[in-house]
């Protein structure tokens, strides 16, 4: 309750919430109202600029409605972002929980593995992994979470280690609590805030990564629209018809900036030192 109120007091965070909410709503509500679907080709009306007739944002090189394609692409992106986030959060929580709780060799091995994976530049890792799988939404979700779970894992590990020797944890341990009980009932409520922050930022990152992979041709395959492959298609026509590239770019920016604002806002709102934060931050 308190956290939500504090979050809404942060202007950038509220703006982020509004942006993401509008985008999500548009993806759900607008497509049924559009006269043309995202895959419908109309060779008589190619390269129409925005605001022309029944095509509010114009058409692409084979006359498909850009608004319909953008919304379909954004929906795919959001779904991939959320699924990848869910997968990486669960993986990260489990690994980080185990290493933080048990320590010892488990921790040494797992955390060094995390370090090793983090050494590779994300984009190369992403592309290498993508080249192994069948292109498609499921593959992207898989590989994006594969490169994103380490960060969650590190955060959870660190948070649990910080709490491990606190007296309230030792107290329930002395009372005979099982590891499951301690992790789920005692640790989780205390570290949920940190997890939410990383996860929100991870959604934004996953959307960007999907765009990279699709742009480079290993992601969502044409004719299915995605923000990434729309950018790819637009390269050829960048000079005569720049809106083909600008529009998907704007949608990516809206989603990523909005989510980042929310994540940063959550970080501030959940910080206990901000408990009596003044209303006019930022």
């Amino acid at each position: 309750m308190n956290t939500v109120r504090r979050l809404l007091k942060i202007r950038t965070a509220s703006a982020g919430l509004v942006l993401v909410a509008l985008l999500a709503l548009a993806c759900v509500l607008v497509p049924p109202l559009l006269p043309r679907g995202p895959l419908q080709i109309d060779l008589h009306h190619r390269f129409l600029p925005p605001l022309s007739g029944i095509h509010p944002l114009g058409t692409d090189e084979i006359g498909r409605d850009i608004l319909a394609r953008l919304l379909a692409g954004a929906r795919t992106s959001l779904l991939i972002g959320l699924s990848a986030m869910a997968l990486s959060t669960v993986t990260g929580c489990i690994t980080g929980g185990l290493t933080g709780f048990y320590g010892g060799w488990t921790r040494i091995i797992l955390m060094r593995l995390v370090d090793a994976v983090l050494c590779f530049p994300t984009i190369f890792l992403l592309l290498t992994l993508a080249s192994f799988g069948q292109p498609g939404a499921a593959t992207i979700i898989g590989i994006v979470s594969l490169v994103a779970w380490m960060e969650v894992s590190r955060v959870v590990d660190g948070q649990i280690r910080a709490l491990r020797d606190r007296e309230f944890i030792v107290a329930v341990e002395a009372m005979g609590a099982s590891a499951t009980h301690m992790l789920l009932r005692e640790f989780l409520p205390n570290i949920a805030g940190a997890i939410v922050v990383v996860s929100t930022l991870n959604v934004a990152r996953a959307i960007l990564m999907e765009a990279y992979v699709s742009y480079l041709g290993n992601g969502i395959q044409p004719p299915q629209p995605s923000l990434g492959n729309m950018l790819n298609d637009a390269q050829e026509y960048l000079r005569p018809d720049p809106w083909l590239a600008i529009l998907p770019g704007i949608v990516i920016a809206i989603a990523v900036i909005g989510l980042n604002f929310i994540g940063d806002g959550l970080r501030t709102a959940l910080d206990p030192r901000q408990s009596n934060a003044s209303g006019s931050r930022r």
Partner: peptide
């Protein structure tokens, strides 16, 4: 049962 020194730290703040 054990009772700890610091009454501030020995109760889970979220409960």
């Amino acid at each position: 049962q054990m009772i700890f020194q610091d009454p501030y730290a020995s109760l889970n703040p979220r409960m």
